[in-house]
Nucleic acid binder design. Structure first.
Lengths: 334, 334
DNA sequence: GTATATTCTGAAAAGCTTTTCATTTCAATC
DNA sequence: GATTGAAATGAAAAGCTTTTCAGAATATAC
């Protein structure tokens, strides 16, 4: 749409120096005499020169691009992690290519390949279901950070809360409030965090000598509708319950909604606890008790760590802890 | 981390053809004799060759990358638009670099420059506050589509619902339900959609001969907390109201919450209507009446259109209409 | 079997930068 | 003023691909 792009050669000519010198001015890689530097900068300003990132990447071997593989853009938790990652890149010169794996391994591997083709300098994986075998291969090829997912023997590169303990704590909280019949709405199958949360729930029951009732466990999918279905299922099967622990907030909203439709009061009749602490939860009626996950901070830590790894610097990962936000949707029971 | 990358020269050598021929096989730009084609493909498979996108982009002038400038990643509406955009790119060979403008013009211009440096082939702007002057400059440089924003004389490249009419309709609905004192919680200042919605609200009142009461208008910021503050403000100023139209769902949730805290029933005492139709709204208690915006579809239309523009093909934009989702948070008033 | 048209193919250039290596410049030293 | 060393600079190569152009191979027509 424009005649021809301004290149480093145009600047070199205009400033009567070699392209190499212009490059040095741009990159501050070597000092150039102040007088020349000034002329070069003027020339660049006048011609509005902007270096071509493709050419730079090709020759330098650093594309200054990171890949971010997220799952199902539009889901609040992961969006916030992505936000943190992108925010953490601010001022670093790096940009992020965001791709969506849709929680399908094939798709994930495919989009990772397009990222690699683009010569990304590093990769952040948010969640996902790629097999450990593939991950092992991948991490040999490119600096890699995992968020919201864990991998044995790779802990130094994984950012996550301890979902097991968080779920344990949430369940324990209900137990301490006097609840004995605690239902659980599971997150999507194969999602690592969903599995961990379920296990934490089960262990908390066990440690308190409470029997786990299969009828009070529902396989959800992290969307609100599955919370609604869960309540139908629980009621149908006839095992009473006084509390529900949902593996995320959206399902907790569905649960709350279904209770309301059946005129079951929350929290007086049934306590509800969620997970993630989406921004909306504090404003629900009743406001939702939930396990907060510091998602944005985790994303920021991910990019910080990745940049360190790329730069060959030692990195250290902060420990992220989930914290229970006690609100109105839970209460003590007789 | 690997010895040396496999290049097209390695393939050429192994297949005993010239690099040009390998290129032709990859791009199917010219037909290559079947026998050679087979050898080349075998060589590529054996060596696991993947073309370097940087080199391709540099020489071909097409980076196969699009820029997506969104605002404030993590806000539901825009995330869904971004999701649509990225989904619409599937199978096209294009990838998206996602950047966050944070609703600050300087920041937006800055990140657009980094996108241009990366030789993006096209750009989608979601919302934003860049001046029309800058937009005019920009659209001369690069194929451009605007989503959630409009620009005089550039309608063929803007994807948006008619926020004015949608707000008009929402307000009219409340009026038809018998409401006369209708408060409004505005979206962030300078946000085009927020302005339009306010205007639609005002016009609907006017057309029905209802006086607009400044005390019943609150300057919000699209976050739930501002819905809470709005109610405080309305009540403090003493002008009664029987309905609230919030410029988005999150503020409507804040409104709902604040009413609850003051034991004002919804919808019996006060009807509440939101905007956007976030997934959660249908599960609230009471479920929220809201104006649905087909955000994902709009995003998909944006990438489809942009790809057409880039390809030099004629494009046409579907018309997107907001649709009122009547739920439980509104009711007829005496 | 030659002339002509067609289809394939390879060599080389181009795309834009960084980086290496050698050279020039300049100040400092004796 | 010649010598040395450091600092600054330029020429050229390198990075990997696509594209142009010309030439080779093959097919077609007579």
């Amino acid at each position: 749409m424009q005649n021809r792009k301004v290149t480093i050669l145009d600047i070199a000519e205009r400033a009567s120096v070699s392209p190499a010198t212009v490059s040095r001015v741009i990159n501050k890689s070597v000092v150039v005499k102040e007088s020349k530097r000034k002329v070069v900068i003027e020339a660049m300003d006048e011609l509005g020169f902007r270096p071509n990132a493709l050419a730079r990447g090709l020759v330098s071997g650093r594309s200054m691009t990171l890949g971010v593989l997220t799952q199902d853009i539009g889901s609040p938790l992961y969006d916030n992690i992505a936000k943190g990652i992108i925010r953490g890149l601010e001022g670093s010169g790096y940009s992020a290519i965001l791709v969506d794996g849709l929680w399908r391994e094939n798709r994930e591997l495919e989009v990772i390949n397009t990222l690699l083709d683009r010569q990304i300098d590093g990769l952040v994986l948010i969640g996902g279901v790629i097999s450990e075998g593939e991950l092992t291969k991948l991490r040999k090829r490119i600096p890699l950070i995992l968020v919201g997912r864990e991998m044995q023997g790779w802990e130094d590169y994984c950012i996550n809360i301890d979902n097991f303990s968080a779920a344990y704590e949430a369940t324990k909280f209900l137990i301490e409030q006097g609840h004995r019949r605690i239902a659980h709405v599971k997150g999507s199958p194969n999602h690592q965090d969903a599995e961990q949360r379920f296990k934490g729930y089960a262990k908390a029951l066990e440690d308190s000598g409470i029997e786990l009732i299969p009828n009070l466990i529902f396989q959800g999918d992290f969307f609100p509708q599955s919370g609604v279905l869960a309540i139908s299922s629980f009621l149908e099967r006839g095992d009473g319950f006084s509390a529900v622990f949902a593996a995320n907030d959206m399902m907790a909203m569905g649960v709350r909604r279904a209770l309301y439709q059946r005129s079951i009061r929350c929290p007086e009749d049934v306590s509800v606890i969620g997970f993630d602490d989406q921004i909306e939860t504090a404003f629900l009626v009743p406001s939702l008790t939930t396990m907060r996950q510091p998602s944005v901070e985790m994303g920021m830590a991910a990019s910080a760590a990745l940049l360190d790894v790329i730069a060959g610097k030692p990195h250290d990962l902060p420990i992220f802890k989930a914290s229970l936000q006690v609100r109105e949707s839970t209460c003590r029971t007789g």
